[in-house]
């Protein structure tokens, strides 16, 4: 192992709230789980960039979410690695910034257990028509609305990365058949049948519950447009755990109004927070959760720090880091 002490700058964004704060106390707890690595790291904590400028010049590694990324090549000549504390990193695209040789990693996988639990809830809610029941409750309207058992229904996961695989696993546990779509089309054990991107319409036509778990890239922006909603199985439902801009929400509202789509649960929006005058708040058969589905209030940062320490160990020993963002793909 290289004996040099690494300087790690941890840049927190207070606007994200305490669930996402990589604070000194949580850092110390994680350091105790990884003493061999921690003894060779000097961590500096900055909030809203209050210690950013004075530290970035000597930093070997940066952990954060929002920072002046386009200035890093100038400000941070020593910087070897940036770890982003979220998974959907489209706000930093294109990935043409930073000093030469910089490796960027993201938090893929950290959300998996909580995303799986939320997906189980969402799948059951779509099959049980909860979005429609909630709309009726607001109208003080009571009506029997039978639904079938979830076993044997089909889930379609659009974007089977770490989160999509976790969602697939949860659907399997509930007895669903699971279809998936990913760029490579390569199989994964959690998915009964995997499609490539050109077969998305086949997946949509067969799925009772569609989960969106893709990153936001040029290829996935407005992926779910009116033509795609028309391809969905009539009466099926959709859950968006990806990014708001993956869905054309006007098209979604039309599909909900016609009944083509029976219900929707949206956790992500463009922009966020969802403006108070957005029609989505009151669209019938649509449930809004404010981007809090997949982040475990207790374990998000500890799991993030375990990933960071594992990558620090890899950095020190010259191994490939986990969760590298491919600059060409943008995720």
């Amino acid at each position: 192992m290289n004996e040099k002490t690494l300087t790690l700058l941890v840049e927190n964004e207070s606007g994200l709230g305490p669930v996402f704060e990589v604070d000194p106390a949580r850092y110390r707890e994680a350091a105790a789980r990884h003493p061999d690595v921690a003894s060779r790291v000097r961590a500096v904590f900055s909030t809203d960039r209050d210690r950013f400028a004075q530290t970035i010049g000597e930093a070997d590694a940066l952990v954060g979410w929002v920072f002046p990324h386009r200035e890093l090549d100038r400000l941070a000549p020593q910087l070897r690695w940036v770890h982003l504390t979220g998974a959907g990193v489209n706000h930093l695209a294109p990935f043409d910034w930073g000093p030469p040789g910089l490796v960027v990693t993201n938090n893929r996988g950290v959300h998996a257990p909580k995303a799986a639990e939320f997906a189980a809830a969402a799948a059951l809610m779509i099959v049980n028509k909860l979005p429609r029941l909630v709309s009726r409750q607001w109208d003080r309207h009571w009506e029997l609305d039978y639904s079938e058992t979830i076993g044997g229904k089909t889930a379609g996961i659009v974007g089977v990365g770490n989160m999509g695989a976790a969602v697939a696993g949860a659907c399997r546990t509930l007895g669903m058949r699971v279809l998936g779509m990913r760029r490579s089309g390569a199989p994964r054990p959690e998915v009964d049948h995997m499609f490539g991107p050109e077969e998305l319409d086949v997946l949509l036509a067969q799925s009772d519950v569609v989960f969106l778990c893709t990153p936001l890239t040029d290829e996935t922006r407005s992926l779910m447009d009116s033509a795609r909603f028309a391809r969905m199985k009539p009466g099926s439902g959709i859950v968006n755990l990806a990014r708001g801009a993956v869905v054309d929400n006007d098209a979604l509202r039309a599909a909900l109004a016609s009944g083509q789509v029976s219900g929707a649960i949206l956790d992500v929006f463009d922009p966020e927070p969802l403006p108070a005058d957005s029609p989505l708040w009151t669209t019938p058969n649509l449930i809004v959760t404010p981007h809090c589905s997949s982040d475990d209030a207790q374990s998000y940062v500890p799991r993030t720090l375990d990933l960071i320490f594992d990558n620090l160990r890899r950095l020190m020993t010259g191994q490939t880091l986990r969760g590298i963002v491919d600059p060409r793909l943008g995720y």
Binding site: G17, V19, P113, K114, E117, F118, A120, A121, L124, M125, N128, L130, V134, W138, E272, P273, L274, A276, S278, W281, T282, I287, V288, T289, P290, H291, C292, S293, D295, D296, A297, Q298, S299, Y300
Partner: peptide, 29 residues
């Protein structure tokens, strides 16, 4: 389903939705 909805604060989130309030409620697993 109801158990999972409660653990994920769905009844409260829907209540905030009705008032057009963006009120993130992070649950624990």
């Amino acid at each position: 389903m109801s158990v999972l909805m409660l653990n994920n604060f769905i009844p409260a989130l829907v209540h905030h939705q009705r008032a057009r309030r963006w009120n993130q409620m992070f649950a624990t697993g």
